[in-house]
Amino acid sequence: MGRIFAVAVNTYRESIRDKVLYVLLFFAIVVIIGSKAIGWISIGQDIKIVKDLSLASISVFGALISIFVGTNLVYKEIDKRTIYTIISQPMPRYQFVIGKYLGLCLLITLMVTIMSLISGGYIAILGGEVNYWYFVACFLLLIKLFLVNALALLFSTLSSPILGAIMVFCFYIFGHATGIFLDLPPHIKDTPVEPILKALYYILPNFSNFDIRAEVVNGVSISMWYVVYVFVYGILYSALFVYLGVLMFENKDV
């Protein structure tokens, strides 16, 4: 456990120096603050729009941070050859992979916390109500980003950062629209494509499960069980992708 912790802390310290991180964080904050401008054109709905755009901003910019930093995680270690003196240590390779993942999760937790507090504070300054459910929504977005991290880590062990980023981005887009794989147009039904798309529906993680934005913005109540279900769903999917990353890295020449 000490080794995993050491790798995680080192990954966090390394990632926190990535300039991309600050550029994305800056734009996220600009969107959160700038959302008030869109609120002005919708009479009486400005707080709702600020809340909505803030949560969307945390989701999108968080995902971009996960993708850009995460797909570089293992690749950068190999490219810069810092991995040589790590893998030669008396530690199983899975400890390295899990350490890298946890380090990235630590980073993304910090980023989401910063964005959540800034957006929450901003909404409060504007006179809006920031209740408990706003932060539950932020928490579920964080769990979603843990899942994106796991995907990014998996592709980081398999491919170059650019290809990895494209793959994770595709997963991210399809993961938000898995419903279309079931709700097929008539000309696809009963064709050989239908079972493939149905299989994709069950295989791909459903990212929209993590999105309770509409409910929070409109004050619709959410069952606590749903939150627990989504939390477990996200953790299990993340564990699966991390496990696949470990398998890929186990026999990789570095």
């Binding site: 080794r3 050491a6 003196t85 790590i86 530690m91």
Partner: peptide, 8 residues
């Protein structure tokens, strides 16, 4: 110290 930690 980092490598000491990796050595356990």
């Amino acid at each position: 110290k980092f490598y000491c930690q990796l050595k356990g």
